[in-house]
Simulated assay, not measured.
Amino acid sequence: MGSVRRVVIVAFDDAQILDVACPSGAMEIANSHGAAPPYAVELATVHGRTTRSSSGILLAGVRRLAEVSGRMDTMLVVGGAGTEAAAKDERLLTQVRRLAGRSRRVASVCTGTFVLAAAGLLDDRRVTTHWGYSELLAATFPAVTVDPAPLYIRDGNVFTSAGVISALDLTLALIEDDHGPTLAREVARELVTYLHRPADQAQISTFLAAPPPSNRVVLDLLGYIAAHLTEDLSPPALAARAGVTTRHLTRLFTAHLGSTPARTVRMARTEAAAHLVRSTALPLSAVARQCGFASAETLRTAFRHQYGLSGDKLRRMPDMPRPIVR
C-alpha cells in the first residue's frame, strides 16, 4: 500500500449529498484518529465542474473523471435522484469501467448500484440497493442477483449498499477492513452512532416494518432504546426519562405498539443480538454483554422465545429468521 489510501467518489448532477458526505466524513474522522495510511478522498464527475446535489447544495472541488489516473484503493459511486440519467450517460459509464480496472475495490451507495450494473460490473454478482428500487434493478439487469434485505453486501472486491445512511455502515465496514475494528469503533463513537450495523441487518427492522407510532413519547423512547441497549432500560428508568409514570408508560406502549415496555426492550435487544451472532464470531457471552443481557443463558432464553432457535442455529442460518408471532 502506498502513502495514502486513494478513494475516488464518482458523482453527478442531482446526486444525494449524504451519499458523498457519509463516506468522506467518516474517512476524514478515521484520518484524525491515526488511520495509517490515511485516506485521500477525491470527488469526480464527467464534466469536472461544481455539481448540484439533489438538495440544491453545490459540491465544489470536483475533478474531471477522464483526468483521474494512476492506481486507486477504492472507487465509490453515489446514488440519488440523478441516477437514472447517470446510468444512461455513456461518458460516465466508460470512465467508471476504466477506474474500476484501476481500483483495489469498487463500491456503490444506494441507487449508485444502477450505475455499476449499467457499466457491466455487477454481472453474476450478488448486490443490494435501496429496498424501494430492488425490483427495478433486478428487472433492468437480469444478470445481476439482487438481494433487497441487507444493509450492504460484499461480493469479491465489490461492495454495494442500501439507502442513504447505510453509506455510513458501509464506510465503517471499509474502515474496519482496512484498519481493524478498534479504529472503526473510534470513528463510530465520534459520529455518535451505535458502532456499525452488521451487513446482513435488515434494511427494515422489526420496529420499522409497521407504521411508526404517532405518540411522540413512544417514538422518542424507541429511538433511545435502540441506541442504548446496554443501559438501564427498565420501565421505571424509561418512564423517568419520558417524564411520565410507569403505569402511564405501560398504557402508552400497549396502545401504540401492542406491547409492554419490558417486552419491547427485550425484542430490541434480541434482534440486535441475533444480527451480531450471525455476522460475527463473537462468543454468546460477549454478544450478551454488548446487547444488554445479564448473561449468555438469558440471551439463549430470549432467542428461544423470539425465534424458537438456539444461538448456534441462528449463526448457521443463511437468512435472518422472522420473530415468532405470539
Score class of each variant (00 low, 15 high):
residue 265 V to W: 09
residue 232 D to Q: 07
residue 255 A to W: 01
residue 271 E to W: 06
residue 262 A to T: 11
residue 265 V to Y: 07
residue 247 R to N: 07
residue 270 T to P: 06
residue 287 V to R: 04
residue 280 T to I: 07
residue 231 E to M: 12
residue 287 V to W: 05
residue 237 A to H: 05
residue 282 L to C: 00
residue 259 S to I: 00
residue 254 T to D: 13
residue 252 L to R: 08
residue 269 R to A: 11
residue 282 L to W: 13
residue 230 T to Q: 14
residue 247 R to K: 13
residue 234 S to V: 10
residue 235 P to E: 10
residue 273 A to H: 02
residue 249 L to Y: 06
residue 271 E to S: 08
residue 238 L to P: 06
residue 263 R to C: 02
residue 280 T to Q: 09
residue 255 A to P: 00
residue 239 A to N: 12
residue 242 A to Y: 05
residue 288 A to Y: 05
residue 289 R to V: 13
residue 281 A to E: 14
residue 260 T to Q: 04
residue 269 R to N: 05
residue 231 E to R: 15
residue 247 R to W: 02
residue 255 A to S: 11
residue 285 S to R: 10
residue 268 A to Q: 08
residue 231 E to Q: 15
residue 270 T to A: 09
residue 232 D to W: 06
residue 234 S to R: 11
residue 234 S to M: 08
residue 266 R to H: 05
residue 278 R to V: 02
residue 257 L to M: 15
residue 247 R to H: 08
residue 278 R to I: 01
residue 274 A to C: 09
residue 279 S to R: 13
residue 266 R to G: 01
residue 285 S to P: 00
residue 272 A to S: 14
residue 268 A to Y: 01
residue 276 L to N: 01
residue 278 R to C: 02
residue 228 H to M: 02
residue 278 R to G: 08
residue 282 L to V: 00
residue 286 A to I: 07
residue 276 L to Y: 04
residue 230 T to S: 12
residue 285 S to E: 14
residue 256 H to K: 11
residue 254 T to I: 04
residue 267 M to T: 12
residue 271 E to I: 01
residue 231 E to Y: 10
residue 271 E to K: 01
residue 254 T to P: 00
residue 248 H to M: 14
residue 236 P to R: 10
residue 269 R to H: 10
residue 261 P to T: 11
residue 251 R to Y: 13
residue 258 G to E: 04
residue 242 A to I: 03
residue 225 I to L: 05
residue 242 A to L: 05
residue 255 A to Q: 14
residue 281 A to H: 13
residue 243 G to N: 04
residue 272 A to E: 09
residue 234 S to D: 08
residue 290 Q to D: 11
residue 267 M to F: 12
residue 243 G to W: 03
residue 240 A to C: 00
residue 276 L to W: 02
residue 234 S to K: 09
residue 257 L to T: 09
residue 259 S to W: 00
residue 228 H to K: 11
residue 285 S to N: 00
residue 229 L to E: 04
residue 261 P to M: 12
residue 280 T to G: 07
residue 272 A to H: 10
residue 226 A to N: 03
residue 249 L to G: 08
residue 257 L to P: 08
residue 260 T to P: 03
residue 230 T to Y: 03
residue 229 L to I: 05
residue 234 S to F: 10
residue 244 V to H: 06
residue 285 S to H: 00
residue 246 T to W: 00
residue 267 M to W: 10
residue 288 A to M: 06
residue 237 A to Y: 04
residue 236 P to Y: 09
residue 262 A to S: 13
residue 270 T to I: 09
residue 272 A to T: 07
residue 252 L to C: 08
residue 229 L to C: 06
residue 277 V to K: 02
residue 288 A to C: 05
residue 279 S to Q: 15
residue 268 A to L: 01
residue 243 G to S: 04
residue 256 H to W: 11
residue 225 I to C: 02
residue 275 H to Y: 15
residue 270 T to Q: 06
residue 245 T to C: 01
residue 288 A to P: 03
residue 235 P to M: 12
residue 244 V to T: 14
residue 270 T to S: 12
residue 281 A to W: 02
residue 267 M to C: 02
residue 245 T to G: 15
residue 236 P to F: 10
residue 280 T to M: 05
residue 236 P to D: 10
residue 277 V to P: 01
residue 287 V to D: 04
residue 228 H to G: 02
residue 263 R to S: 14
residue 235 P to A: 13
residue 283 P to E: 03
residue 265 V to G: 06
residue 231 E to D: 15
residue 276 L to M: 04
residue 253 F to E: 07
